[in-house]
């Protein structure tokens, strides 16, 4: 059930090349490249590209850090199982709670407050002047919003 690749099973870190400073700098460089890609991807604006670049690469970066920096993959099985189990529990929690919190209607119930909020905000967006709309570049240049922040209701 270990959620990480089967690293070499030597708990003691003898000095093979995987521990030399040069190796770490190489991994760091790869991480920076991935960061660049994950920043560039969303600018294209295509939804699935953003998904792949931003979140997919985050998982790859996470794996690189876990394997090369934290050496979890070469750690004893019991530590890997503990970390993996806790991560699985969070997935369990997410998918078990999703039908109630993520969705706003189900068998014999309807989360009206959430649906009203969505309709209210979408309506307020159509009327708000199109000029300063969300897709203006996010940093710095956005001048103060004409209306109060999007959904401050009270």
């Amino acid at each position: 059930m270990s959620s990480h690749a089967e690293g070499s099973h030597d708990a003691s870190h003898h000095h093979d090349d995987s521990h030399s400073p040069a190796h770490y700098v190489k991994i760091w460089a790869v991480l920076l490249v991935l960061l660049g890609v994950s920043l560039a991807g969303p600018e294209i604006g295509i939804r699935w590209v953003t998904l792949i670049t931003a979140f997919g690469i985050a998982v790859v970066k996470a794996f690189l850090v876990i394997k090369h920096f934290m050496h979890l993959t070469v750690e004893r099985k019991v530590a890997q199982y503990a970390i993996g189990a806790c991560f699985m529990l969070m997935l369990l929690f997410f998918f078990a709670v999703a039908p109630d919190v993520m969705k706003h209607w189900g068998v014999n119930w309807h989360n009206e407050a959430a649906s009203n909020m969505k309709r209210e905000i979408e309506r307020s967006e159509h009327h708000a002047p199109a000029a300063d709309q969300a897709h203006a570049p996010a940093d710095g240049a956005g001048h103060p919003e004409a209306s109060a922040p999007a959904a401050a209701t009270h």
């Binding site: 709670v97 109630d100 919190v101 407050a113 959430a114 959904a151 209701t153």
Partner: peptide, 13 residues
């Protein structure tokens, strides 16, 4: 707070 997008059921879970 349901009026502001929150959900009391999240706390229960």
């Amino acid at each position: 707070d349901p009026d502001r997008g929150g959900d009391p059921i999240l706390w229960q879970h």
